[in-house]
């Protein structure tokens, strides 16, 4: 047990080191002078003195290897560098944006699970027609691009009906449309996998034995079959979380919500390299933690895995 945990943690540290190295050397590929980028790009016509000062301050005049080791040292102590565009430390800035995105992602993941479970439970009990309708709904839901779903929801619920605000104002009503935008496509994916494994579970020997013990149909569904059916969906949740973070880039931009996604897009547009790396590193950390958690959750839900 302890050995397994240590191996997973070691793997996580390796991935982080590799992510840091890849991003460091990828940035070296950027054409042009990084000092120029700090001072606002080639259009800014910075003086040679200013460029020299920036080179010295950021260490661009050092050999690449020295810069690389210095970068790793800073990252190990949690220092993510300074944003070119905002001239602030990246670490605290990114951390302050993390909460909003995590809230969005967790709410969307929970809602997607609820929708998928409800649809799977309904469509497996309602005969062939319900199964077809359920499967069709899931396939279409999974195909909805976030940016189109978000604009369509805004048109219907904000502009025509006036129920929810089109821009997040900080209140709970402002969360409804962003969470729906992220949850609906995800529910499509989770629902497909759940319905399929629910059908398998309902035909399996353990359900037969539960029925023969006199368990009610409802009891069979909720306590036996759904637990079994949720296993593949739990193992998808790590992927789901990653796709939610990626979806947050679009959703936070459209709904003007503060968060990691919008920060990342702004930084990409301004080519603010340290900021992009900072966000990517934080996302990688969260993503790796999420994968470890998913692994643990699968073990909790599946007693067979705990025996081995």
């Amino acid at each position: 047990m302890i050995g397994r945990v240590a191996a997973r943690l070691g793997g996580a540290v390796f991935v982080l080191w590799a992510v840091a190295s890849i991003t460091f050397f990828a940035v070296r590929l950027i054409p042009g002078d990084p000092a120029q980028a700090v001072l606002g790009g080639p259009g800014s016509q910075a003086s040679p003195e200013a460029l020299a000062m920036v080179r010295n301050e950021y260490g661009f005049d050092q050999p690449v290897l020295v810069q690389y080791l210095a970068q790793l040292g800073r990252l190990a102590t949690g220092d993510l560098g300074r944003s070119y565009a905002l001239n602030q430390d990246v670490g605290p800035l990114v951390l302050s944006q993390l909460g909003g995105t995590l809230l969005l992602a967790v709410l969307a993941l929970a809602l997607a699970w609820l929708l998928a479970l409800a649809l799977a439970a309904w469509s497996t009990r309602g005969g062939t027609v319900a199964a077809r309708v359920g499967s069709g709904l899931e396939t279409v839901a999974a195909a909805l691009p976030h940016f189109w779903l978000a604009t369509s929801l805004i048109v219907v619920f904000s502009i025509w009906l006036g129920v929810f605000p089109p821009v997040s104002t900080g209140g709970a009503t402002g969360l409804v449309l962003p969470v729906l935008t992220l949850a609906i496509p995800l529910a499509g994916f989770l629902g497909q996998i759940m319905r399929e494994s629910l059908l398998l579970a309902l035909e399996s020997p353990f359900v037969l034995s539960a029925r023969s013990r006199g368990e009610s149909e409802r009891g069979v569904l909720w306590t036996h079959a759904l637990r079994h059916a949720s296993l593949p969906a739990i193992s998808l949740s790590g992927w789901a979380f990653g796709s939610l973070i990626s979806g947050a880039v679009v959703v936070e931009t459209i709904f003007a919500r503060p968060g990691l996604g919008r920060t990342l897009l702004n930084a990409v547009t301004l080519r603010d390299v340290p900021m992009v790396i900072g966000v990517v590193m934080i996302v990688a950390v969260v993503y790796i933690l999420m994968t470890l958690l998913t692994d643990a959750a699968t073990r909790l839900a599946d007693p067979r895995l705990r025996l081995s």
Partner: peptide
């Protein structure tokens, strides 16, 4: 496999965004 595992730590569009910040839109 290790290399792929590292690339998977950039979920969804993140890798694409990283490439765009390097080579421009």
């Amino acid at each position: 496999n290790r290399f792929l595992e590292v690339l998977f730590a950039f979920p969804g569009l993140l890798l694409a965004l990283l490439i765009i910040v390097i080579y421009g839109p």
